[in-house]
Design a protein around this nucleic acid. Sequence first.
DNA 1: ATTTTCGGATGACAACTGTCACCCGAACGG
DNA 2: CCGTTCGGGTGACAGTTGTCATCCGAAAAT
Lengths: 200, 200
Amino acid sequence: MIRIIIAEDQRLLRGAMASLLGLEDDIEVVGEAGDGEEALRMIEKLQPDICLMDIEMPKLSGLDAAEKLKAAGSACRVVILTTFARPGYFERGVKADIRGYLLKDEPVEKLAEAIRRVMQGHREVSPELVFGSMREENPLTPREQEILRLAAEGSSASEIAEKLHLSYGTVRNYISETLGKLAVKSRIEAVKLAEEKGWI
Amino acid sequence: MIRIIIAEDQRLLRGAMASLLGLEDDIEVVGEAGDGEEALRMIEKLQPDICLMDIEMPKLSGLDAAEKLKAAGSACRVVILTTFARPGYFERGVKADIRGYLLKDEPVEKLAEAIRRVMQGHREVSPELVFGSMREENPLTPREQEILRLAAEGSSASEIAEKLHLSYGTVRNYISETLGKLAVKSRIEAVKLAEEKGWI
DNA sequence: ATTTTCGGATGACAACTGTCACCCGAACGG
DNA sequence: CCGTTCGGGTGACAGTTGTCATCCGAAAAT
């Protein structure tokens, strides 16, 4: 019997998956979590074989949770299940030793199958990830990302400078660099693009 | 037997709902669509009693589809099923005569029940919509929305002016007005806020 | 028939943004 | 020890934003 936990904030999807997987006779859904923290608590208590984990969840993202599990040396295998095929996410997941990265665009039938294969020691990845935009690496340095992130929240150059203890001019240089790298003409476009690609 | 169609772009959720609803013995899932256009074609051909419709879908949004159905005088009852409790969406849905507006945050059990109640002539709305942010009306005029939408895509004032056949100065006046109404200090913040609230 | 209202336009000003060329010092690699 | 790279900083310039006061003409309202 494969014991799994489902961490997903959309109750509808979570419930639906739990019901369906529960119908499989080699799989048992032992717990459902609505956010990352709850998932961690549950994994520790119930020691499931696999945790099906969404990324964008309240309190603690699925990737954060996976990283904490790795750090704690948990035996629970994490399978990320998300809408977003963002290369940044995938890469981070790989570093956190996840065993699978599935997209919510996959047909349901594949889900149980993927879980079984992960139990056998395989790694499961949605094909879109393997080919696809995948190899679009993040061209931004950490600093540039940090600055663009603040700009995305609506901070002006001088506000960013203050928050980061940099000079006004330096911040503007970074933004200028960033615009060049992303080949766009304004912060707004840069923010859109970077958010879409998962670069910030 | 209640005949329904599910229009939802996330294959996983679509499949899961179809399987679960199919288990109910008074409900029959007669079709599944992955975008708005497909949903319309299917509804016309299969004449289902109810269409469970996501909003954000490729090609044609669920709201657009609902409006077209209303215009065509279709007998198919539309139930919106979405992540977003945006007042603007809800309002638009009501105008398109939808019979229900459910959030994906609802537990699965409610789904079949809501469908039955809609068949009996009731209207089903997630409680969050009734109270909640609901009463935050869109403070922006159509023109202001149009302009903010373009700004959101990264257009500069002069580009917007060109596209809308307005003068440069007028566009800036509109944006200034908008910033005032939304009580923010820059386009970026305005865009974030307006998108979040569903005002553009 | 005269106000209001409203969409649109101007012009001017201050502040902010984006670009560029160039400077500085610390940290390597040779 | 020297050169290069790299994070950070300056200053200057042109262009874009955001703000205001003000203006015009066409609908509505009274």
